[in-house]
Amino acid sequence: MSKINKIFSDKIPELSEKEEDLLHQVKNVRTTPRDQRFPSQNQALHCWNRYNEWLLCMKQTGSDDDKCQVYRQWSVSICPNDWLENWDEAREEGRFMGVKI
């Protein structure tokens, strides 16, 4: 119980400028936006599409990480890590079913 109370009653500590900046960044982080193409409860296809959109971006920009970072983030946000690892592995082994770079 004391542990819970501590979390609720802790004062917000004084923050350094760097921390303030980070806090501001964290506040403004927005997850993958809702997609009109996937209105149903099952978002598995949404996740798959976001991953392939990232690959498409990588293909078009010649694997420019900075430009495709948003797409990567959007796929990472909604895909379980297991799935991503699976697909990354499949791409390395050349047996990936989606967009081929």
Binding site: Q25, R30, T31, Q69, R72, Q73, N81
Partner: peptide, 8 residues
């Protein structure tokens, strides 16, 4: 898993 801050 909360991955929204991955590439921040």
């Amino acid at each position: 898993e909360i991955s929204d801050f991955d590439t921040m």
